[in-house]
Amino acid sequence: MGKILLFLLMSYVIIWAYIFPAPQQSLGEVSRIFYFHVPSAWVSVLAFLVSMLNGIIYLKKRDLNYDIKSSSASQIGLLFAFLATVSGSMWAKVSWGAYWNWDPRQVSIFILLLIYGAYFALRSAVLENDKKAALSAVYSILAFITVPFLVFIVPRVFESLHPATSVVDQNLKIQMSPKVSLVFFPSLVGFTILFFWIWSLQVKISQRVELKKGG
């Protein structure tokens, strides 16, 4: 039942993202990508948070299941960060004239991708399971500390072409027309549910891989 609802919710988002007028008239038709770009970025932050929380639980309980949960969340987080980067650079091509401009927002997401890329390099470099889990848990905590800084602070401190007030204004008040909200918030909810679904599957797959390796 939940799956059907998710299917209908995302279909609703896709259809209305096309039918309603473009969310940012000044940026033109391409701004419709907003409904997918921002939720992708949101899911990546959420996934990195979930990864850090499971890393902390692993350090407390020393149960390898939490390591699997933590690394699976990071994998999905990296995927969605990549999707946000790709959708963002498509938008940049139309609005700013080039796919990549080394705008502060692009630099910060690039650093974030490198940080989480290094997380997997670290995991693949350590063979012993307990050591790998402990190191990754500590790394996931350190890596997440950079997330709010790179995602929310850097692009607002440095002068950037990227809009900083498309969802909330400087007083953290939602600033969107009702029509845009009618598509944007369902999209956020849909992406979040999709994340938890994919995450649970990834955890199951990783658990099986570990079982096969162990036995």
Partner: peptide, 30 residues
């Protein structure tokens, strides 16, 4: 046209995740 293409991509992604989900559930029962 673009709308139909994106809807089809979404349907394909959804069905694939569903298929994976049911396959993993079946595996657990065995």
């Amino acid at each position: 046209m673009a709308l139909i293409a994106i809807l089809l991509i979404w349907i394909a992604i959804f069905l694939y995740i569903w298929y994976l989900d049911s396959k993993l559930k079946k595996g657990n029962k065995k």
